[in-house]
Design a protein around this nucleic acid. Sequence first.
DNA 1: GTTCTTCCCCTAGAATGTCTAGGAGTATCT
DNA 2: AGATACTCCTAGACATTCTAGGGGAAGAAC
Lengths: 114, 114
Amino acid sequence: MQSETLELLRGTLDLLILRALKVEPTHGYGVLKWIERATGDQLKIEEGSLYPALYRLQKRGWISSEWGVSDNNRRARFYELTPDGRHQLDAEVADFVRFARVVFQALDVPAHSS
Amino acid sequence: MQSETLELLRGTLDLLILRALKVEPTHGYGVLKWIERATGDQLKIEEGSLYPALYRLQKRGWISSEWGVSDNNRRARFYELTPDGRHQLDAEVADFVRFARVVFQALDVPAHSS
DNA sequence: GTTCTTCCCCTAGAATGTCTAGGAGTATCT
DNA sequence: AGATACTCCTAGACATTCTAGGGGAAGAAC
């Protein structure tokens, strides 16, 4: 069953959104698609999770937004990382790496079992 | 800043509890201490998280319990994995490994940066 | 020119997991 | 007698994600 999608984002949604926006500013739907592509379709996020998350991140000052027009000629809200957002991204990446290592250690799973 | 404890369990508490009980049946407090030790004090769980989690796991049939007396001569409720619990543990370990790998891939972090 | 699909935005409410902030009792050590 | 560590527990708050909707507009297909 290699192909079913994983169910839980386990608090990494913010992290993935920030990472997507580091690549280049884009709109919500673009973030969605980036995450799917970047994870080889193994992680899918719902729009009902995404938009509240974008609102949250903006409220915290990690991203900013403005209305624009997409490549497909549609009205869309474009987001980009703020300087604070870049720092936050770095911090969250470091945290996740540390977290994963600690859990692997506790589980007694080699850190790169592939 | 290497030494501060991680804040988020990101849905891995069940996993860690099951893993603790795979080592040997023990009581709630023992699970707590096992997790702290196994993670080098980098992951601490609150009792207010632990006991509801134990109840949950038992309700799902993954652990069973009975009252007994601890090494320190105190009344304690001992938990152990059921056969279903063993399967669940294996599944959750596999899921976590897969999840971590996918996130690392998306973040473009080498899978074993140490 | 109507229909369909994809793109794009959004919200309310439910479900879930974890934490905060308590309360309680008992064995052992000083 | 008091302190400390051990052990159990609950209620309510909080944050995150999902379910389950709604809607509009561009371009392609018929």
